[in-house]
Amino acid sequence: MLEEVKHVILVLSGKGGVGKSTVSTQLALTLKEKGFKVGLLDIDLCGPSVPYLLNLEDQNIHQGSGHWIPVYLDKEKKLAVMSIGFLLKSRNDAVVWRGPKKTSMIKQFLEDVYWQDLDYLIIDTPPGTSDEHITVMENLRNVPQCSAIIVTTPQQVAIEDVRKEITFCRKTGIPIMGLIENMSGYECPTCSECTNIFSTGGGKSLAEISKIKFLGSIPIDPRIGALAGKGVAAVKELPDCTTSKVFNDLINHLPHTTANGS
């Protein structure tokens, strides 16, 4: 049911914990603030964090005639969300599935969710280059407007895995829109000295070497961390922080579409 979706944006990283879900949710919230119709699909089946991040943990998916109706963040239905988290009985429930089951769940997410017309569908992914990723790629092969944003943190341990993800994109033919570096530095709340906890500049130099557009650096900002679980856009809540600037700029790099007013 992706016929009415104008653009699909995959958020990828080979490494875990680099901030894919934070980038996905903030990107979706930023687009919603700008008046677009957005969908957010969480295909991290073993560790879905989107429902928590958007403060939707108690929501349920409703069954339509032969399809699933996503959860809407707002009354105006500008932001639609789908995650396996909505299908679990308890937040402690573990999804202990091998590849084939994950594959069929993701196929259902792509085929059976009634997204309606969307300007952007953002897909948040787990780390790695395995079942989830292969399945999404195979199923999006026929969706023309599809590209990827790569998220990394600056240190070598992360860069090493992200290089593998770039190879994955190139092998499967998905265009890479650009790369975001997250957790670049941390400003001490006492003395304001900025420490590069996870070293510095790794994302930018990776972008240069791999000939990928660099979309900006996001610092470690506890104020952004505190937005987790609230479901509000950084660009609205903290318009002057670096993170908001990066997301505002990011919108300009997205493939263009006219805001869907209807």
Partner: peptide, 13 residues
């Protein structure tokens, strides 16, 4: 090479 990706589904892993 460090760029080599292991693009494997479950059974191969």
């Amino acid at each position: 090479s460090p760029d080599d990706a292991v693009i494997w589904r479950g059974p191969k892993k």
